[in-house]
Each structure stands twice: as structure tokens, then as C-alpha cells.
Design a protein around this nucleic acid. Structure first.
Lengths: 102, 102
DNA sequence: CAATGTTACGATACACGTAATCATA
DNA sequence: TATGATTACGTGTATCGTAACATTG
């Protein structure tokens, strides 16, 4: 599983439409189909039911949604943290503590 | 970024040794080096300081560790959830709600 | 020199796009 | 028949392992 798949899943759960979700993620429609299919295979069941005109979440999809949401949040805040530290000299923790106590 | 990289990072932060961490992850040592290097590139700085005899966390490494820990936890509990639903007929949520209220 | 980390490099697998096909409202 | 999802397939990139090299205690 990769992080992109999580972004794709969340986009699809918001849009309920492969076309729009794919555009939102800046990928082609078939790529989204494949990514979601791989995710479903990994989790052992369908995440969405392909219905017209809108796609519906499956029970499994509903179950994993909050987990993916939290993971996405962690990733975002982590990147923000990393960005905040960019450029600063990141000494090893031990040395940093040493410097602070001196 | 992929989930493997997170597992690798956590293993390395526990072992503080590429050799042991790689064995723990069932990959070769050079693969771990490459994976960590890619992660460091993505986050914009070193996560570890390569010292003998033990590796030390950098400030950035310390900063992202709790995020990765929480992500790993989410993944684990999500897989447990998915496993619990495996085999059960996962109707679309709408239909399931319909069935429940009838 | 023994132990540990990094480069180099080739093979396999994966992600993505384009084009063609299928399904349904 | 128009819209939207899937399948087929080619291509570039990434991941991984083996082997050779570098470093340091």
C-alpha cells in the first residue's frame, strides 16, 4: 500500500465518481480504477459499489475511511513539521541536548 | 512515500543499526540504506546520524517518529478491522441501513 | 582486520497513460 | 447513444538483491 492510494481513496469517497476523483488527483481514470482495485484486493473486499449515477461506500469502505482520514492528517502535519525544520541544522538529538544543557 | 518505508524507519529507530533493522524487515542491508535515503530526501533532511557503534536520531527523525508511530498504529488497527469484515457480505452502506430499519 | 554502511548495477515489479471495450441511464 | 468504468498493453520508474567498495573502531 502506498500513500497515493490513500489520497485516491479519500478523493473517491468524497466525489463518489471515478472521473471527478481522478481529475482531482491529477491521474487518468483507468489508473484510479487500478489503484482502487489493488487496495480492495489488499483489504480483502470491495470498498465501493459501482452504481449509477453515484458510487456508494461498502461496509468495508465505511469502516476504513476514518483510519485513512487520520493517516492523511498525520501525513499532512508531519510534512508541515518537516518543512518547519528544513534548512535548520538538525543535530543528533544527543548532541542537541548536550548543547542545550551547556 | 510508501508504507514499507515507514516500517523500515520504525525498525531502524528501534534497532539503531542498519544490519539488524534490515534483518527485522526481511530485506537486504543496501535496500534499507536506499529506502531510508529516499525518505530523507523526501522530508528534506537526514533522519539519522550514522555513527559508530550506534546510529542516532536527528532532530528531524525525532520530530517525525511520533507521526509514523501513529500511522503504523492506524494501519494495524485498520487491517484488523478489515480482517474482521472479511467474508461477510459488505453491502453498500445505504442498503445496509435500509435493511436495518426494516 | 572485523564489522558496518554505501555504491554500482542488473532484474523484477509497480504505477501510470493511451487506446479500445464494456455497461447503463 | 452519451457518459462513465474497466480491460489491455506499452513504458518509465522504483524496489530489491548480489557483489564490490569505503569506513571506522
Amino acid at each position: 500500500m502506498n500513500m497515493q492510494q490513500i489520497r485516491y481513496f479519500l478523493a473517491l469517497s468524497e466525489e463518489r465518481n471515478f472521473r471527478r476523483a481522478a481529475r482531482k488527483c491529477n491521474i487518468a481514470q483507468p489508473s484510479l480504477t487500478n489503484a482502487i482495485k489493488a487496495l480492495e484486493q489488499e483489504l480483502g473486499g470491495p470498498l465501493f459499489w459501482r452504481k449509477r449515477p453515484r458510487i456508494e461506500m461498502s461496509t468495508l469502505g465505511d469502516a476504513v475511511l476514518p483510519h485513512f482520514t487520520r493517516i492523511a492528517y498525520e501525513l499532512e502535519s508531519m510534512h508541515a513539521t518537516a518543512k518547519g525544520l528544513a534548512g535548520t541544522p538538525t543535530f543528533p538529538a544527543a548532541e542537541r541536548d548536550f548543547m542545550m544543557t551547556t
